[in-house]
Computed example of a mutant assay.
Amino acid sequence: MEIGLGLPVGAPESLPDWARAAEAHGFSTLALLDRLTYHNPEPLTALAVLAGATRRIRLQTEVLLAPLRETALLAKQVATLDRMSGGRFVLGVGVGGRDDDHRAAGTPINRRGRLLDDRLTALRQIWDGQPYRDTVIGPRPSTPGGPPILIGGFAPAALRRVARHADGFLCAAALSWAGPLVETVREQWTEAGRTGRPRLVTQINVAAGSAGSIAQARRAVEDYYAFTGRPGWGEPVSDPAELADTVAAHREFGADELILYCWGDDPRQVEHLAAVLR
């Protein structure tokens, strides 16, 4: 099982330091979340900067809210990032469940699933060199047919979307209730006549380092998930023994990759996490 890092969003200027440290310590992926009305950096822009700061590590949106973005421009942005990173980009996408994001973008939240399906179909056509609205949009991505696509979500429609459009499933659910989601995705994959099996990427929130860094991470998680009205939702794992056990559980679950989402700003957390995982 590979292990990647989900990058904190509170201090975008520190992300190149995070990226270099993550690559030096052998992490597989740098992932960034996407929101429109939050204070996070725009992920495609940020990952383009991190592509220039690194050489080997993958770059992944987790997840990009594709319904908020115009199709042709999104296709061009992704293809450019794929080309300029040497094929290291992975496009994780989802519909987005926050009213404020869709309201700010002017997209009808009750049509977000249809919008995502339409965009995914069009993206593949554009990256394959087919005309879109009577014209060809370049550049062609370095990865034939476009970069790998992962789809995140919990609803039945999101799970069906994996077999139709994607290369894998981003499962943000706790392992205690992730099993049926993954089983459904794999069953639909087989029913659709897809060969092999979908890539499975799971994620957990973590905090490491000093007491101050851990406290900052907890506050950031509380702020981000306040809209749920559930105290303690998304509580980051900070105890080293618990983290080691949690990583082992995801490996046993069959995840191809686990993303450790960090919420404190201090990039020295990378070294602390790497030490736990050795």
Rank of each mutant, 00 (worst) to 15 (best):
D167I: 00
R83F: 10
S176V: 14
E23S: 05
G146L: 03
A172P: 05
Q203N: 11
G92K: 08
A24H: 08
A19E: 01
L159T: 03
Q77W: 11
D99R: 15
P198V: 01
Q216I: 06
V9D: 07
E252D: 08
G145E: 02
R164A: 07
R58P: 04
W177R: 12
Y261H: 04
P16H: 00
E23Q: 06
W127Q: 08
L116I: 05
G254E: 03
D167P: 03
V162T: 02
T228M: 13
L47P: 03
T195P: 01
I149F: 02
Q269D: 06
Q130H: 13
T45V: 14
V201E: 04
W263F: 10
D34Y: 05
G196Y: 00
T195A: 05
L91R: 01
R161K: 07
T121A: 13
E271C: 08
R219H: 14
P236Q: 06
E183T: 15
S142G: 08
F89S: 02
A105D: 04
G146S: 03
R103K: 10
G153C: 12
V95F: 09
A226V: 13
G96N: 15
R112H: 12
T190L: 06
W189Q: 03
A122G: 12
L181G: 14
A172G: 15
T54P: 07
E187R: 15
A220Q: 09
V162G: 10
D223I: 13
A19S: 08
L68E: 07
L47G: 06
V49Y: 09
L258W: 04
C262T: 10
A155M: 11
D128Q: 14
S210C: 08
F169M: 00
A215N: 06
A244D: 12
D128L: 12
G168P: 15
P147H: 05
A48N: 11
G212K: 09
R194V: 07
P240C: 06
G26Y: 00
